[in-house]
Structure formats: C-alpha cells, structure tokens
Design a protein around this nucleic acid. Sequence first.
DNA 1: CCGGTTTTGTTTGCTACCAAACGGAATCGG
DNA 2: CCGATTCCGTTTGGTAGCAAACAAAACCGG
Lengths: 167, 167
Amino acid sequence: MEDRASPRLLDAERLIQERLGDRPLDFDSMLAVSNIYRAATAVRRSAERGVLAQFGLSWGGFTTLWVLWVWGEMRTADLAEECDLSKATLTGVVKTLEKRGFVERRQVESDRRRVTVALTDAGLDTIESLFPRFNRYEGEMVRELSTDEKQALAGLLRRVIVAAGQA
Amino acid sequence: MEDRASPRLLDAERLIQERLGDRPLDFDSMLAVSNIYRAATAVRRSAERGVLAQFGLSWGGFTTLWVLWVWGEMRTADLAEECDLSKATLTGVVKTLEKRGFVERRQVESDRRRVTVALTDAGLDTIESLFPRFNRYEGEMVRELSTDEKQALAGLLRRVIVAAGQA
DNA sequence: CCGGTTTTGTTTGCTACCAAACGGAATCGG
DNA sequence: CCGATTCCGTTTGGTAGCAAACAAAACCGG
C-alpha cells in the first residue's frame, strides 16, 4: 500500500537511502527517529502559530499553565518534572508567565527554601478558554489518523519514550 | 494486551483523564500529540548526552553536518530548508560549526548575495566517524519496536507531519 | 547547640530557535 | 541605463533550553 499523502517526504527518504545505501546502516530506526523529531517540530510550530500566539504563549508556557490547571499549585521541582523541563529552564518560563500575569510565585512558610507556583485568576481564565481550542487544534493535526491509529501511535511512542530514557 | 513497559506514563495519562474526563475533549488526539512531543524530547536529549556531547555537537549542529555530508555543499536557504530550520537560526548554527572548524562559508562569485556552506576536512572526518555511532544509538532508542512497528511508526508520523503542516 | 551535609531554587554562561527588520545585490520594466 | 522591486543572508530582540556553580535554608550526628 502506497503512502499517497506524503510523496515528497518519501522521495527525500529514498534519496538518502540511495546516497548511503552501500553502508551497513539501520534505516528503519533512522527513519523512525527522524520522523519523531520532524513530527514534533511540525506539531509545535503549527500549534504555536495557529493557537498559542494569540494568547502570547509558547509551547513551554502553555504546558506549564496546563499542568498547573490540571494539578493545581505545585512546588517548583515537581512542576519542572511534570513539564519535562530542567529546574533552570522552568525558572525562566515561570518568570515570563509572571510577567504576563498568568501565574504567581508563593513562598512556603514552613520551608523557606521552597516556592510554589499557582495560576492567577487571569491564568485560569486563559487556560479555561484556551485549552478547548488547543485540543480541537490537536485533532486537526492528527486528522488523517483513525482513532485506532492514534492509539497505536501513542502506544508505540510510549515505548520509545521509555527506551530512550534508558539508552 | 496491557502495556507493561510504561506503567507510569499510562498512570499519568489516566489521572489526567480523571481530572478532565467530564469535559468533551478529544483524548485520543491529545495523547497522540503529547506523546509525539515527549518522545522527540526524550530522543533528542538522550542522543545529545549519549553521543553528540562527545563531539561537541548539538542536535541542530549534527543535523546540519549530516545534511551537508549527504547532499554536499549547499546554499544557505536550501540548507535551512533541509535542516527544517529558519534561515536566521541556521546562520547561528553555522556560526557555531565554523567556530568548531567543521564547516566553512563560501561566497558565490556569480551572485554576491549568495553564500554556500561546505564541510571542512575535519567536519568530514567527524561526521564519517560519528554517524555510524549515532545510527547505532538510534537503534538503541527504538529497540523495543520490531521492524514492522518502526515502519508503521514512521508511516503514521509522516501523515501527521503533512497534516500539521497544513493545519 | 553546632559544624558539616543535603536540599532547593536561582543565577550564570552558553547554544538554539523564531519573526521581523535590515541592507546589499540582482533583476525587471520602461 | 535607471528606478522600483525582489531576493538573499544577517542582525536584532526576544524566549527557551541545558549544565554547572551558587547561596540560602533545613537537617543531622554528635
């Protein structure tokens, strides 16, 4: 069965194979990995331009808002973990979100090393109105896949996430 | 069939569903998209730490070297396109690669607006010895998948790339 | 208590990434 | 030719991202 939807991508992949075909390489793994990365870039760029820009948010900023919405006020370290960012990066993202008035920092009384981050009212309003739109946009980006295929894709990726984390 | 390899990921996904389950959301699309992004981050980080750091290269720097290796000397705009980066970003990446001695810029005689980028001898040596290692590492990161599954994954992602590009 | 250790978030220094503005070079219509 | 336009790569100004160094606070053994 031919992949009618993406002749250009496949052509490029074939050309690469022609150029490197005489070497003993693992093309299946190469194409799987490079397409993961390309897809992530495409998805991020599209969402940032198509939805997030209107709210003045980057992908990382959106993710942070979303995590705080789902889980509520959180300590910095846990928030970084949940957003899949280093603590250092999170400090910067939170700084930007504070500037925009979406979140606020709170000193923890019982342990003054600690800081929690929470949504402001404006942040809550924003994520409440943004997330349904974002989710519809996600649907657009994977509209070519059936429900089964979306689930299969998520499942395959889950196994890659685990394996890459251990590699 | 349960997904034994990633209980934590699935648990987190279930918790999110519990928290948002009363809203009319498209969870299949949400999980597909977020796992694409998570997998790309995992793969990039793992490769940068496990292979590229030894050569003083970032993911973007490696990609650029690789494209130049496969396709040969290229004009800036084409190189940016092939690396899936903006021209502005590519200018910076090339600057770094020049500093490291991996590539060189060349003025085009016939059109002085144009610049080409080419591998130096050091750059060629580097990519020749690096790429086989990188490719083995790619294999490690997707080791949990069979050949068929890798190809299926690449195929599904190709369709997402196209759809996201049009969304 | 008190000195050493661990924990926690921030800062520092660097690279990467983009959009938009720019400035020099080529091209095209007249 | 020449003025307007288009083309090309870089610069500018901003956010994001990491590792490593850091400072302050808490903890712990004696």
